[in-house]
Nucleic acid binder design. Structure first.
Lengths: 140, 140
DNA sequence: TTAACTGCAAAGATTTTGCCGCTGA
DNA sequence: TCAGCGGCAAAATCTTTGCAGTTAA
């Protein structure tokens, strides 16, 4: 009944309204990286009493509370996903548009090293690989 | 007289108009990562006969021709910079907003490896580190 | 009870586009 | 010459916000 995302909201003491509960559920169940319009569509399918403005306000709130992560893929809109315990990055399949999550420990270590070398403390990062399926490019 | 960016345009056979020449010059001389409005302001300071629509059309054209690289930092707009021979990534100083370019060979190698492991051929990537100056966080 | 939240519609910001006159090669 | 380009203004997106009524704690 209580989604993972809702659980995190409760832990952070966020006031849970009906709308926020539905949006939390939608994101906990999402296996992809929906944008606001998609979150809105999935939410209103569960309950009509949710406006697009509320979805915008809620995902922004959740992202600020580190309950959601946001993705900017240069599409002119923001996608969201549940924050995972284990950090991961994204590979965007340019053929299908599919987004593949991956983790790489070396990457994570390297980032810290780079930031430190430049005199900084790492706060966050965005790492996206754009690529084509190997099969598609064979024989070129 | 002929900027580096203009030179690349000529090599690619792009029709050089007055406006495109000015925009090329602005980007060749930019030491930062200006957004479209900034490119427009710098361009019109050189010559008034340039419209915002033309700047949008031109930077998009240049980016498609790999003459410029675009940056999406989650600000809701796109920044541009000259494509360098040596690829580099960005560290965003969250205190000052300053963007620091850096190169890291290990990073470049790691990307290819990750893509390959997932069954893909690397086409491009975006890697941005968000960080705070070490001095600012001392004593916390 | 009441501070916070929501819906609605309007406004903002960024980017694209249709149309028509202009221009570079 | 003339296909392609640029200016202008309208429109298309995506996102935020003011206001007044509603609701969670």
């Amino acid at each position: 009944m209580t989604s993972r995302t809702e659980q995190k909201c409760l832990e952070k003491g966020i006031r849970m309204t009906h709308q926020r509960r539905v949006i939390a559920k939608v994101l906990s169940e999402a296996m992809d990286h929906p944008d606001v319009k998609e979150v809105y569509d999935r939410s209103t399918a569960i309950d009509r009493r949710i406006s697009l403005a509320t979805v915008y306000r809620t995902v922004r709130l959740y992202a600020e509370m580190n309950i959601l992560d946001s993705l900017e893929l240069g599409e002119g809109r923001t996608r969201y996903e549940e924050s995972a315990e284990t950090h991961h990055d994204h590979l965007i399949d340019l053929k299908s548009g599919k987004i593949i999550d991956f983790t790489n420990a070396e990457m994570e270590a390297l980032q810290n090293e780079i930031a430190k070398k430049l005199g900084y403390r790492l706060v966050g990062h965005k790492f996206e690989i754009f690529a084509l399926p190997l099969a598609e490019t064979e024989g070129e």
